[in-house]
Amino acid sequence: MVNFGYTLMTEQSGPKQLVSYAQQAERIGFDFEVSSDHFSPWLVEQGHAPHAWTVLGAVAQATERVQLMTYVTCPTIRYHPAIVAQKSATLQLLSDGRFTLGLGSGESLNEHVVGQSWPGLARRQDMLAEAIEVIRALHTGDLVDHDGEHFRVESARIWDVPDVPVELALAVSGERSVERFAPLADHLVAVEPDDELVSRWNGVDGAPQIGDGGSARAIGQIPICWAPTEDEARELAHEQFRWFAGGWSVNADLPTPAGFAGASQFVTPDDVAENIPCGPDLDHIVEQVSAYWKAGFTDVALVQTGDRLQQRFLDEAAAPLLEKLRAAAA
C-alpha cells in the first residue's frame, strides 16, 4: 500500500494557516504530513518562513492520527545536532509516537544566516554523518560526551525520552550519498522518482530494506498546482515555484531569495509546467505522481503550490484526488 502525504509548506503560508491546513488534511484522509524547515523562502513572492518546529508542536496537538515528519532538517549549522536530538524527542512525545525526523545536508539559503561559512558537499555530508551519531547517542537517554571533528557535546542528556524511538529518514540523491547514509538511516528521502535510488539502497550492506516486507520507507515529494483552470495554475506555479527549475545542484548553494530570483529570471511558465502538473485535471496529476510508486516508493507527499488556492484545493480537490491516487496505486 502506498501512503499519501500533505506538505506543510512553511515558505508559502503563515503558522496559523499551516496548523489549520494540517487539521483539514487529516480530516480529508491524508496518511502523513511533512513540513519544510527553512529560515527564508526561496522567492520573495512566497512571503513566509515561520519556525517549522514551533508549527509542528502545534500540529501535534491539533491532530490525532496523521503521521508527522520534517522534510527535511539540516542538523549541522543552523541547528546543533544536540538541539535537534532534544526537540525531536519532545515532538515524538507531543505527537504520541507519530513523528519521523527527516534529515539532510542542507541549503545555503537557510544555513548561512548564522554567519558560518557554507562548506562544500563532501564536508556537509561528513558533518551530517557525525550529527547522526550524536543524535542517535542522545536519543538513548544516556549521558553523552562527544569530541568529534565537527561537533562537541559535553555531559549532555535528553531527560524526556519517548518510549517510541524517533526514526531517522535521510535525504539522498545519488550513489555516493546512498552508500554513505543508507546504513545510518531508518528510511530514504528523495525528491525524484528514481528507481535506482531504491535498488541501490537495498543493495547496501547494513541498510534497512525497502519493500518485500522490509522496514524502511522510501518517501518522495512532488509539487502540483491544482487550480480551476490550467492558465491560472501555470501562472501560480511560475510565480511561486520557478526556483524549482534550477535543480538541487544549483539550489543548494544560492544564499538569498534575490539569488533565486536572478537564477530563475528566464524560467517561463512553460518551463515550470514541464516539471509540475498544472490545472484541474486530477487524472493528469495522478499520472505524474504514479512515477513514484512505479519506482518503488512507499510514501509520496504532495505539495499544493501557493497559499492563494490552498484552502480551495483542500475544500474541492484533495479528497477526490486522494481517492483517485489510492485507486491507481492499488
Score class of each variant (00 low, 15 high):
A129F: 06
S117R: 15
R123N: 04
R136I: 09
P119V: 07
V113R: 00
G106A: 08
L103K: 02
S108W: 08
E130A: 04
R136S: 13
Q125K: 11
H139V: 02
H139L: 10
A129H: 07
A131L: 03
G104S: 07
R123I: 14
L138E: 12
R123W: 06
G120H: 15
L103S: 00
G106D: 00
R123V: 15
V113N: 11
Q116S: 13
V134S: 00
V114Q: 05
L109K: 08
S108D: 09
W118Q: 01
V113D: 07
S117P: 12
A122P: 06
Q116D: 13
G104N: 01
A131V: 09
H139Y: 00
R124S: 04
T140D: 08
L109V: 04
L128K: 03
V114A: 04
L128C: 03
N110Y: 05
E111Q: 15
Q125F: 14
R123H: 06
V113G: 11
G106R: 01
R123C: 12
A137D: 05
L121R: 15
M127R: 13
I132A: 03
L138C: 10
A131H: 02
E107K: 01
N110L: 02
R136H: 10
T140R: 09
V113Q: 15
L128P: 00
R123S: 12
R124H: 03
A129P: 06
